[in-house]
Design a protein around this nucleic acid. Sequence first.
DNA 1: TTATAAAATGAAAGCGCTTCCAGTATTTTG
DNA 2: CAAAATACTGGAAGCGCTTTCATTTTATAA
Lengths: 338, 338
Amino acid sequence: MATIYEVSALAGVSLSSVSRVLNDHEHVSEKTKKKVMAAMAELEYRPNSVARSLASSRSDSIGVLVSELHGPFFGDMLSSIELALRNAGKHAVITAGHSDEESEKEGLDFLIDRNCDALILLVDAMSDDDLITLSRKKIPFVILNRNIPEIRGNCFYLDNELGGYLAAKHLIECGHKDIAYISGPLSKQDSTERFTGHKKALIEAKIPFNKALFYEGDYLTQSGRDGINDFIKNKVLFTAVACANDEMASGAMRGARDNNIDIPSDCSIIGFDNAYFTEYLFPQLSTINNPIKAMAKMSTQWILKNVYKQKDLDIKNLFSPELIKRESVVKVLAGIKK
Amino acid sequence: MATIYEVSALAGVSLSSVSRVLNDHEHVSEKTKKKVMAAMAELEYRPNSVARSLASSRSDSIGVLVSELHGPFFGDMLSSIELALRNAGKHAVITAGHSDEESEKEGLDFLIDRNCDALILLVDAMSDDDLITLSRKKIPFVILNRNIPEIRGNCFYLDNELGGYLAAKHLIECGHKDIAYISGPLSKQDSTERFTGHKKALIEAKIPFNKALFYEGDYLTQSGRDGINDFIKNKVLFTAVACANDEMASGAMRGARDNNIDIPSDCSIIGFDNAYFTEYLFPQLSTINNPIKAMAKMSTQWILKNVYKQKDLDIKNLFSPELIKRESVVKVLAGIKK
DNA sequence: TTATAAAATGAAAGCGCTTCCAGTATTTTG
DNA sequence: CAAAATACTGGAAGCGCTTTCATTTTATAA
């Protein structure tokens, strides 16, 4: 591998000049620039990124820490981040926290040790306080899918309450009154927000909230199925169920089938997130779109703007959910159901 | 940030000694080791990975190039790689080729420029020749999901033919004789291999291959649906359909429903890959397991062994598919179907 | 034309570490 | 107990680049 030294020798200029053309500095004459470029081409010179990094204390790399690497979201998110970053000549260093607090912190240290210029965090296990503490250190970072008021400017998140509201409202508008709700774990912020939105829609429609129609799941498929079975066991009537994510909704569909309940003619189901597999389901799942790609892209824009000082980038932190109507929700028929 | 220099000063030893304990060298006395460790702890010293990299020309990073970042496989694969790597103190630098040859090559250069110690490639667009050429360069690499005979030792791949065979055989054993096949693009190696296995099972069972029951899809959902519609349009009889991947199988399920064909009572369907969403489908899709996680893990083991000289690691290159029986395949009933 | 500002260039220090080499201290061996 | 082997330690060069500073060249103004 040719070094900058050989380029300078071949071009007949100093190291500094080569470095200058490499970094697009002003104050380099066209003439030397040409000479240097020619020498670089001839030697097939490729700058050593490690050496650059050491000398400049920039690494052109962004650390990405996610709680889990699998699941329907991660691919979309990362794809979006990677593309935006690479277009800007940067790159992603990926690490997973495997949903364990200790492991997440380790991952964080790992990325910091790697001299990342900035961090993108999509973490569950770490506490708000940990993140607020981190914000006092010098490494810039953004947080995806979470809203911490103290550092709101660094957070990119969905209006979960609105999402929960939209889902419930859609069911209500289809004539449903007995609406079950399968929630995510209430220890998680997004779960409570979605649930809040759900209740809000009920209140607005003057539908009393029936505790027997609430089930706290864990965002995994099986808990959707469990939820349905729980409702059935309790002999509580419902013509629709709203689920706090699509995995649970798919579980709920199965749970309904277990009990000979046809979707959607006997019972409508709506999910949340618009994971890509929702289209594969039968019936295709109506759901709430979670613009994770847009959020991911925005988070990289924040970094481009604030860390790499690129201009003309608008930043928005709050993203809006949208109703996606597909096949799993239908109008309640004239007569009483079931 | 404290540097090694400050550590050496505080500990009262030379730079070299600090570096030695940092790198677990032999020939350091317990005494100095203790002093150095104490100094490191006191200063909360963290070695600068970039400087280490420059001085040692190792980066402890492995480049991962995938053709696409989304889709059902990527998360599992990456999760597996990342975990194995991090346990070994290494890390992953991820890049996507976005299924475009130019872009894949760019990604490759990108990773090489980053001084990766090794590469893991899961690429579609690059040709065998490109990869063989790469093998002559000094950077070590492995290839996932592809078998290039000239560099077989670097390839980790599935026995696709066996997979195709197993799927067809399962259908045959369930009494099916009129078996449709929805293939992936025949330009891809895995597609032709899977199809070869399929035909082999037919031959073995003395079932003639009916061209009208073959449809070449593109591995995407829609083409599964199209395949079914094609068969229907041609008025060809079938009681089962084997699909070359799960996406197309999910499309085929939908296509069947479009035509009022019940799965599995009117028609059995089997997929390929065992993507995680297959369990969400109704009926749950019978399929062929593709042990992508195991392959991914094995590829990192190869790197640990060959690049980082870890001992006691067994390497295998060929992985075996396995039949996963779920709900979408049933025995053909006594009478003639349909 | 000369004084002055601006642009272009090169020399050299240094980023934080590894590693080779030589030298000193400690063991081992006969 | 001396000689030889071995363990330990420090000095110093160097990894390939950026960046500051001083110097030289060129453009601009008076």
